[in-house]
């Protein structure tokens, strides 16, 4: 099936299924995500987009099916603490930060040395601060570095989550290659949207697989190289955004609702 490494998807799902009380949130879903591409996932509310990401990042267990990371690692289940070591990270639809910690600490903690012994005695070094400064400046939160995360505005909180992803890529465990963004644009001002789209394009150009869940069709069209349309936990359509978004069944299921 795969011809060479270049075209091999970095993450595949095979018949992933998850149901809650008899309702299939995700039903035998087999889709691929490729490196160096932005893959959009769209679908009406309750179509299983977030559930899919939650299963793939170990937040909830998979009922059946498996995921294949980098064509090699076949996983029936993934645990939340292993997600980063498989090269994956994510943001959350309902932004999840370390609320009681200052903005800069939210970033520094991601840069924590994996060796506890070192971390125990090591003050965050100049290198860590430099990285933290770099990612916070990128999202425009450097001036807010000493504020508690809970005191940020909604949009700033979303940006901090993006900065945390960037920090993981810079200095986290292993290489982060797969980045799930769950509605990163919701509630953002236009200039903030520009920052996030910039970051996403940069990640794509660095060869990362960026997976975008989004309701804003203009942004999906602008950013996605490939999209999947989910409906009731099943795959309704896939392909180039221009083609897929013109399909009648897609419009009926989603856009025309």
């Amino acid at each position: 099936m795969w011809k060479n490494r270049e075209q091999m998807p970095i993450l595949e799902t095979k018949h992933i299924t998850k149901h809650f009380d008899g309702v299939y949130a995700v039903n035998k879903l087999s889709i691929n995500f490729e490196a160096g591409k932005i893959t959009g996932i769209i679908g009406p509310n309750g179509s299983g987009k977030s559930t899919l990401i939650n299963t793939l990042t170990g937040m909830i267990p998979i009922d059946s099916g498996e995921m294949i990371v980098a064509g090699a690692e076949r996983l029936q289940r993934v645990k939340a603490h292993e997600v980063a070591s498989y090269g994956m990270t994510r943001t959350f639809q309902d932004v999840r930060l370390f609320e009681q910690m200052p903005v800069i600490d939210n970033i520094l903690v991601v840069l924590t040395e994996r060796s506890i012994w070192k971390a125990l005695f090591e003050k965050h070094g100049a290198l860590h601060l430099e990285k933290a400064e770099e990612v916070l400046k990128k999202v425009g939160l450097w001036d807010k570095r000493d504020e508690l995360a809970k005191n940020l505005s909604y949009g700033q909180r979303k940006l901090l989550e993006i900065a945390r992803v960037l920090a993981m890529i810079h200095c986290g465990v292993g290489d982060i290659n797969i980045i799930f963004l769950d509605e990163p644009f919701a509630g953002l001002f236009p200039e903030m949207i520009k920052i996030v789209t910039g970051v996403m394009k940069e990640l794509r150009d660095q060869g990362k697989a960026v997976i975008l869940i989004e309701h804003n069709m203009d942004l999906i069209r602008e950013l996605s190289d490939h999209i999947y349309v989910l409906d009731s936990g099943e795959l309704l359509a896939e392909g180039k955004p221009g083609d897929v978004l013109a399909r009648k069944d897609v419009i009926e299921a989603y856009l025309g609702e």
């Binding site: 997600v83 980063a84 930060l97 370390f98």
Partner: peptide, 14 residues
Amino acid sequence: KAIGDDEEVSKIVG
């Protein structure tokens, strides 16, 4: 502190 704040997210961010 991060674990005390949100253990699940701490795991996710490595």
